[in-house]
Design a protein around this nucleic acid. Structure first.
Lengths: 238, 238
DNA sequence: CTTTATTCCGTACGATGTACGAGAATAGGG
DNA sequence: CCCTATTCTCGTACATCGTACGGAATAAAG
């Protein structure tokens, strides 16, 4: 399902990118598939981080020449958009939609969190401007259905969904850096020593107290559920 | 105030980076200053985006050779950390701290939002792991002081601050992409046509309804204040 | 067959981060 | 005052990146 981009406007044209049937029945038959390329890129990003995804490595992974990728995506940024929508396909299958919209919304948010933890490059990728692909739109449709009982108007529903997603992305980004940093003990120790030194300078009494009486550490899951509850239970209280 | 990194552990050593008095009184006098280099990088990032900040351009801006920068920061990632803490200096001056901790927390969040809008590269930079520098710690100290009346333990206070920051970062990242996208009308039109086409396929009834009855658009400021209120007013309800 | 459209990909270019090491400048010890 | 250790400066060089270009290969249309 190769690609052809008109030089109309700068960047990605959503109609050209997402609304393409299977027209081209002339010329050489494609040796690869967009799906396969995207899947390879996603696998690499999941395993080694998004910065490990280079056009050369993806091409090598699928057994193509580097420049062949450009028949399937006009540039790397577009490939990233395709990756985002590709993994969003994992979200579309969950459809129960119980009775209470607050519960449904929490379920959706927990789904998003699990999804982003599975693909740690997602939070950063979501903060860049993107045009929603079919899988993303399917999930949006689901979320809008969950919001139907609220009686909010269109703009408000979209805003709730966007804010919820932004909240989850922000939380997961923080959660990921925490757990990643915790995996190098010497780094943790160095940071602890550094903070202790700062707290000992007398100009950070609150920090000193926090460090001396930390309290019980909280699990990321519990913290997420707690703050999510704050956010959602407060909704619709206009 | 040049720099010297011991090859101890991988990455950035906070003690080496932040706890450096002004020891070296031997050898050639520095021709530039860390402050000046960071300020130049920040100015460039604010004006042209973080991807416009390259070692070559920063060096040219301050009148140095490229490799001279490496006497002031061991690598580009560290320079980014320095930039983050540098701009955090703008936050430390705001100290009133009124009576109600919820109000104080909202003030802090609004400060953070304005700060991130002034430096649009901040939300993305914050989602990467960093060691808090002196300015960041000063602001944290302020936030912890605001949280004192809550009686939360240390870990909980840190968690509230982290979640609040993550929320603001997520919101601002979304807000920035919205306003940036709105500045290219043809892109907006193309996306509208695309969404209309998707909505017309009959499989996205909720989306179709949202597009047909959008309601009044909300200002980013109002949306932020609303969701922030939800989040903070719900706190401490344990 | 010729034409036209499409994919494949080797080569090449400009840009980037930064390793290396030679030179220049400064301070302390004799 | 020179010597030596130390520190900063920066030209050169290299690996790696995204991708422009163009020709060869392939397949359908005329």
């Amino acid at each position: 399902m190769p690609h052809d981009e008109r030089p109309g406007a700068a960047g990605v044209d959503p109609e050209q990118l997402w609304l393409r049937p299977t027209e081209p029945r002339r010329g050489r038959r494609p040796s690869f598939s967009r799906e396969g390329i995207i899947a390879a890129a996603v696998t690499m990003a999941d395993a080694e981080g998004i910065e490990a995804v280079t056009m050369r490595r993806v091409a090598a992974q699928v057994g193509a020449g580097v420049m062949s990728l450009y028949s399937y995506a006009p540039d790397k940024e577009t490939l990233l958009e395709l990756m985002v929508d590709h993994v969003s396909g994992e979200l579309t299958v969950t459809d129960p939609l119980g009775g209470d919209w607050r519960t449904d919304l929490k379920t959706i948010a927990h789904l998003q969190r699990a999804h982003m933890l599975r693909h740690p490059w997602l939070p950063a990728a979501l903060s860049t401007r993107r045009v929603p692909g079919p899988n993303t739109l399917a999930f949006l449709e689901h979320a809008l259905a969950a919001l139907r009982p609220t009686g909010l108007d269109g703009a408000a529903k979209l805003e709730v969904f966007a804010q919820l997603t932004a909240f989850v992305a922000g939380h997961v980004a923080h959660e990921i850096t925490q757990t990643e940093a915790a995996r190098s003990p010497d780094r943790v120790a160095a940071e602890a020593r550094y903070l202790a030194a700062v707290a000992a300078d007398g100009r950070h009494p609150e920090l000193a107290e926090v460090l001396s009486a930390p309290g019980r550490p909280l699990t990321a899951e519990a913290t997420f559920a707690r703050f999510l509850g704050r956010l959602i239970d407060g909704l619709d209280a206009d």
